[in-house]
């Protein structure tokens, strides 16, 4: 009996593990296709698009890295734009979150709802009026314009998450700061900052993923190729008079490296950040 139970659980585990393994392979397969393709010649990829490169050639990669010195420029732009967006969102949304959760005032719920309304409106549908707005402010063609617009559209979710998180802090802690003659600033420094790590990482990661992958907005705002981000570069590369699939795959393979490295080295934080924030919300 005991033996049977043991046997069953082992078998159960084996089945579960196999399911997990197969799924992982399926989920990762498209990425695998990219990396296999990147090491093939033009003839190879046409003859055998999904097989293992035989022989593997570094020619494609060399060509791309040699040709696309612009890749480094694009990487820099992506980092600058994403970094800027994260910084602005964190500062503004965190402050607003504190204001909306820790200060009692008339119309607080209304202001909160006002921000939340933005959740219902994606960037895509407001693109033209947004362009007009950016032009009025003289921000078309600049990276700052992309940053401001992206940050603005990230505000609703971030304010939502921060407010929810800060609401959980017991009022006594805040009162204690007040009694000690401190202000909200003290409270901010001694209570909020030390406990905010998870929520800050949640928001950073959400904004990071959105901003890094954003295609439409930078496409419409930026015109100088020297300002192009990585997604724009991929589009540019597989353009009108595109080269072979091996080169497109090679270019994508390289483009995926920064986010891949970031993700797999930080994945513990990425996932913890996402989970802690989302559950609170």
């Amino acid at each position: 009996m005991i033996f049977k139970q043991h046997f069953q659980t082992t078998r159960d585990k084996a089945i579960k593990f196999t399911i997990a393994l197969v799924t992982a392979f399926i989920m990762f397969y498209p990425i695998l296709v990219v990396y296999l393709g990147a090491f093939k010649s033009k003839g190879q990829i046409n003859a055998d698009p999904f097989g293992i490169p035989n022989p593997a050639t570094l020619e494609t990669m060399k060509e791309i890295l040699g040709v696309s010195s612009s890749f480094w420029q694009m990487l820099f732009n992506s980092i600058v734009i994403t970094g800027g967006t994260i910084a602005i969102v964190l500062i503004l949304a965190m402050a607003a979150g504190v204001g909306l959760s820790r200060i009692q005032f008339k119309g607080r719920q209304a202001v909160f709802n006002y921000f939340i309304m933005g959740l219902l409106f994606p960037l895509t549908v407001a693109v033209l009026p947004l362009m007009l707005q950016l032009r009025t402010l003289g921000l078309t063609g600049t990276r700052l314009g992309v940053v401001m617009a992206q940050a603005a559209f990230s505000i609703p979710l971030s304010v939502f998450i921060f407010t929810g998180f800060f609401k959980e802090i017991p009022q006594e802690l805040q009162d204690a700061c007040d009694i000690d003659g401190g202000t909200l600033l003290t409270f901010f420094r001694h209570v909020i900052v030390p406990i905010s790590t998870p929520v800050v990482s949640t928001v950073s990661i959400l904004v990071f993923v959105q901003s890094w992958n954003q295609f439409l907005l930078p496409l419409l705002v930026l015109s100088d190729q020297a300002h192009y981000t990585i997604p724009l570069g991929v589009m540019q590369y597989q353009g009108q008079f595109a080269s072979g699939w091996n080169q497109i795959m090679g270019f994508i393979a390289i483009s995926l490296l920064p986010i891949g490295i970031f993700y797999f080295s930080m994945q513990k934080y990425v996932i913890e950040g996402l989970t802690s924030g989302a559950v609170k919300g």
Binding site: G84, A87, I88, L90, T142, V147, V200, S204
Partner: peptide, 28 residues
């Protein structure tokens, strides 16, 4: 963990400032 996040934040801030100054220079 905390340190890592702080580091990321600092980098983000520095980069953002760098960018603003770059764009300022440009418009100037």
């Amino acid at each position: 963990m905390k340190k890592a996040i702080v580091c990321v934040l600092m980098v983000a801030l520095v980069v953002a400032m760098g960018m603003t100054s770059v764009s300022c220079q440009k418009s100037e």
